[in-house]
Every structure is written in structure tokens, then in C-alpha cells.
Design a protein around this nucleic acid. Sequence first.
RNA 1: GGUCCGGUAGUUCAACUGGUUAGAGCACCUGCCUGUCACGCAGGAAGUUGCGAGUUCGAGUCUCGUCCGGACCGCCA
Length: 582
Amino acid sequence: MKRTHNCGELRKNDENKNVTLSGWVHKYRNLGGLLFFDLRDRYGITQVIFDPAKVSQDIIELASKCRNEFVVSIDGVVKVKPDANRNLATGEIEIDANNIKIENESITPPFNFLKGRSDAKEELRLEYRYLDLRSEVMTRNLILRHKVTMATRNFLSEKGFLEIETPTFTKSTPEGARDYLVPARLFPGSFYALPQSPQIFKQLLMVSGMDKYFQIARCYRDEDARGDRQPEFTQIDIEASFVDENYIFSLTEGLMHQIFSESMGIEIPVPFERIPYSVSMEEYGVDKPDLRFGLKLKNITDITRNSEFGVFKNAECVKFIAVEGKEDLSRKQIGKYEDYAKHLGAKGLAFVKLVDGKFEAGIEKFLTDDDKRTIIELAEVNGNAMIFFGADRTSTVNKVLGGLRNRFGNELGLTDPKDFKFCWVTDFPMFEYNEEADRWDAMHHMFTMPKEEDIDKIENDPGNVLSKSYDLVLNGVELASGSVRIHDRDIQEKIFKRLDLTNEEIEDKFGFMLKAFKYGAPPHAGIAPGLDRLLQVMTGEETIREVIAFPKAKSLNCPLTKAPSEVSQDQLDELNISVKKK
RNA sequence: GGUCCGGUAGUUCAACUGGUUAGAGCACCUGCCUGUCACGCAGGAAGUUGCGAGUUCGAGUCUCGUCCGGACCGCCA
């Protein structure tokens, strides 16, 4: 028996066709006489019926042995059902079986996935991932992933981009995340590093004149995992020569438009709003604002300078967030938000209730009439509201109120997962001060072009140097990061110097790159959207793991293969490695 | 590395302040059932309450340790 159709394609107008279907028994219903199967493959589900009035006793006996997840093939005739099942695409028809072959039996699965999603905990789903992927939702997610990568390849290829592979065994470079290392057998004591991104290679390809490059590239970073972070993940890596940031903006906007259009039938409005980093931090408290809702942070530092209230008077920054309709929060509920604020670094969470145009409770008695007037003016609320204040160092205020803003966005139901709001965050600072190491680090990376007007500040005023870098943000998720690159050796050396890299370090780590740049490096710019995060937002999934076929668990192990695992002494000896036992 | 939440039948969960024989849905097994479509009905089997100590007359429940999973902080150019 060889299948003639899949389990998702037969319809009313196929009536009376002789067909053969193969698939898994999704659900069997034995009525004693009549016997029904829901037969499933990745295309869909089709009902099969065995009628003892029409087929031999042998076949009925064989069919009645089948259990869920048995693999079977069935010969039969397409019939229109007396009553259609509206829950199935094939619900108007069924296969009136005249023969069955059990291709393979299945032991009882550890969980069910009858309603589209597995009904087990994630740990178990990952251990039996091959079963979990049979579920409707996971199958749909993997199909969408394929559509997105195909749309990406088609779009970029049409625009003249070449897909070029770069090495996964490469050189460890300083800064950034921790590298995954691979011992080099022929070079005892030396290691390859898995790439955190193909950054250096794609810039070298620009020197090669490849002009427009892209790659669906696997990247590796040895840091703790999160819902939106895996140790290995996939980027749509893009670089182009003789272009500026505006080219990258419109290219990426076109790419996102095509991806949503081709894979989901959604027309995303372009161009995307551009928000300078400083504005984003001021109004949203974060560098990846969720634009699906307002709830902007309001700065009242100017008026609180003269406040009688010590907490406000002495703070570097005072901002508030006015949450409409939340003025009836209980003391206990407010405590819950205060705990959250403390978790984010706040010392406390001052609040005041705005009820019928008047302030009540909380820090009401510390506010002057002038303060209240200003707050009402800035708050821009219709009706009553709960107002939360942050008063601390600017970075802490932003962290706390930015976090609360996102939390309220969620709790107030303002974050519709079907609402896709893109924006660009631009003009990031070039450097950020690393207190622990007492030095300046590159905020994006050290090949990022500073703004021309800021170049002479690099040496003495690094904190005020802005760069030609940009992030693409979708619904509060950082989807992509990119920049115009430095193609001028002098500027590059200035940056290296500012980052306190010695000549020896520069030569050792980047000598090959600087050498390449002596042979005519074109001006170039690029970007790298994260494929997994894009799919996470598109599918509305809670974690990136739901759009990856075989993800690692949060602790970075693989419940399916049990990797990582110890290796034999022989393997270690060959690699000249001795292991410290804990 | 830190804070918090969780681990009870194959599975998802329940078990009030410590107190009888640890329960239910789904799955599984047996029987009945000719239009079900999450079929139905009747019955059955199924437990080292993650692991190890401790407190107690008595621990799923309280304490300590440990392992595993998750969320957040740190970290992630």
C-alpha cells in the first residue's frame, strides 16, 4: 500500500475516489460494530470508518487491534459524511475503508496531544520531543519557521544578496558573551571558538567585494538561558557595501513586510517608527519599547528638586507612571508591585491615588499643590488612576518603572499578541562604562561607526559619543541589532585605544582583520534579525523553545539526548585535556 | 551565583490547622455498544508523595540538606 493522498487534502468533490492514506492513529472510537479512526499526518486529520457490513471479519479484527499512535495504511473510498465535523478541514468526508495494514505498533505514549498541544510539562515534552512535535501546534510552528526562512531567502536573493556560509570553528575574540570552546586536537592547549555571530567574516566578505551577503546563521553564546535566549540560536545575518543606515532600514522593513505577508498573510505597515535611544529610555525606561500601549513614564525631576520630601529631593531622577483604573488597588496588591520594584533594584515604591481629580493616600501629604497640578497635567489620564513613582539613580528609575510599565501593559490586557508594532531604536551610545572593570566597553560592538560629529569626543568624552547603530524592536522584543561599520583604520584604532586594548592584544585578536582593511575596505553596514525571536512573536508563544525543533532546557542540557555528557579518558587523552574533578 | 515558585498514579492536578485505607479527569486493561467525531456505559489495574536526614505518638503536609524543572535578577558586545 502506497499513499495516494495526505490526511489533510480530501474534500467533498473527491467523493467516490479510491484512495490510500497513511499516518498515525490520532484517536480511535470503537462503537462495537462501527469502528472509527482519526488518521493523522502533518497535513491534517481524516476520519476513517470500518463498517462490518462491508468488510471481512479479518479486517475488522485487525483494525480493532489498533491503538493511538499506531502507524497504519488504509485503502478505501471517499464518502460524504451524513453529518459534517466542523472542527476538521476534511470534516465533510470520511474514508470508507476496505483494507488496513498496520505498518508499526506504538507503546502507550507518555502524554496526549489531542487538542493541538501536548498536555504534559515541558520537561517531559522535551524528553519525548519527537512525540511533542507531532502535535498540531508544534507542527504548525515548524511549518511557519520554514515559510519564514523561505521568504527570507527569496526576498534577499531577489535583491541581489548572496547566501554565503562562514565557519563555525573560529577564533575566540574578547568582550561580548562567553565563548563555547572546541579543543584543537592537533594544537594541544589551543581552542577554536564557536561564533557568537559571523560578524568578522561578513565584514571580510565586504572586503572581498561580495557586496551583498546574507546567511541563515547559527550563533553560539555560553550564557544562562532565558525564555527568549538559547545557547545556540539562529540569525538572519545581513551585510551590504556602499550603503548607509537608511538602506538597511528600508531593506529590513521590506524583508519583514514580505515575511509577514508570505507566511501569515499579514500586511505590516512600513516604514517603521524611529525612536532615538535617549527618547526610548526617557519615555519607556527600556531600549526595546513595546508600542502596543502608552503608559509612558513622566519625568518630574525638575519640580521635585525643591520638594520637601527627602526621597524626591535627593534623587538623581524622579519619574512616575499613571495607571488608569488601578486606583482601587488594595494595600496588599500595592505591596506585590513594591516587591517587584525592589526585585528590580528600587528601595521602595512610592504611590498616590488620583480619585475624582484629588490625590489620596500614599505620599499625598508630601506633594504641594504645584506638584499635584504638574502631575495631573503630565499624567494625561481620563478619570481615576494609581500613580507610581520612581526616585533613584536614573538607571534604576528606568529599570523599575520600565518593568512596571510592561507588567501593567500585560495585566491591563493591552498586549494583544496579534498586534504587531515594529519600531527602530537608533543613536545608541558608542560606549558604556563598566564599573566593575573600571573601563569603557563598546555598547554594540567595537566595529560600530561613531557619529562623525562625535569622533573627536572619543578620547576625552566617551560617554557622549553616539554611534550609527540601531535595533529593530517588535512588541517589546529586541529582534535585530545592526550598525554602520568602521571602514577607516584610523577611526578603528581610536576605538580600540579607547577600549584600553593594548597594541599586542589588538594585533593578536584582530591583526588579521586590520590587515584585510588595509587592502581597500568598502563602506558597509549590516543587521542581524534573530529568527527564533521573530517566530516567537509571530506565533505568540511564551518562549523561544516553542519555535525550535530540539531546544535545550533552561539549565542548558538536552532532556532528549542527555547532552552534555562525560567522555572517555581516551577521548580526553587525544585532546590533551585533563579534567579537574569537583 | 542570587531570589521566588514547583516536583503526589503513565499524565494533568487535588488532599482544610500534621490525623482513617493518598483522591479525581484523561490515558491504560476487560466487557457491552452500528454514526461516532474529546463517542457512551459498567468494571478493573495503577503510588518509594523527587531523594536523604530530622521533629513528632503520627509527615504528602513542618525543618534542614540535596537533585530536577520553571520565572525573574546577575549575565547576555
